[in-house]
């Protein structure tokens, strides 16, 4: 089996075990370990990646289902070592403690603000309720996402902060 998809703007190929999840494929076969696996059951949201613009649980999706898709992981949110406006807002607001859940929260928020740059606090809380943070930096995370909205509204979302 060999399949192709676009990962963070580059074409990649995968030819492993048929039952490989997209999360395992990204982490072990494509070396993108920023996507974290917290529960393997789609409950915690740590493994969230963006597939064709939608936030999805990569632990519940098989790699074969990504054939031909555009996949974005946390590594693809910024260019090189510069932080994206969303990542920079997380840094500014100290919006994490351990940070293990952060990649899934960043990708979830990125997908949300890309579609709805004017999402209000209630909407943000609602969408993020699928992501678990145990440490728990919930409030600074919401502040950071609210702060990052402006960059999405004026189209700077993919650019370094």
């Amino acid at each position: 089996m060999a399949l192709q998809f676009t990962l963070n703007g580059k074409t990649v190929e995968f030819g492993g075990e048929a039952r490989t999840t997209l999360a395992d494929c990204l982490r072990h076969h494509l070396g993108q370990t920023g996507t974290h696996v917290g529960c393997e059951h789609g409950v915690c949201g740590a493994c969230t990646v963006i597939v064709d613009g939608e936030a999805v649980r990569s632990c519940l999706m098989l790699a074969v289902q990504a054939e031909g898709s555009q996949v974005t992981t946390v590594e693809g949110l910024s260019e090189g070592e510069d932080l994206s406006p969303l990542q920079a807002a997380f840094r500014k607001h100290h919006a994490l403690q351990c940070g293990f859940c952060t990649p899934g929260i960043l990708t979830t928020a990125h997908a949300l603000l890309t579609h709805e740059p004017d999402a209000d606090e209630e909407r943000i809380r609602h969408v993020l309720s699928g992501n678990i943070c145990r440490c728990t930096g919930y409030l600074p995370i919401i502040e950071a996402i609210l702060d990052a909205r402006a960059a999405y509204a004026d189209g700077r979302r993919g650019k370094p902060a």
Binding site: Q32, T35, L77, E81, R91, L96, G99, L106
Partner: peptide, 20 residues
């Protein structure tokens, strides 16, 4: 002062679980 480890955490895999 900002945490020393934040940039790494915000951009990719820096955890034990990511060690390959």
């Amino acid at each position: 002062l900002p945490r020393r480890d934040l940039p790494g955490i915000l951009t990719g895999g820096v955890f034990l679980q990511d060690l390959t």
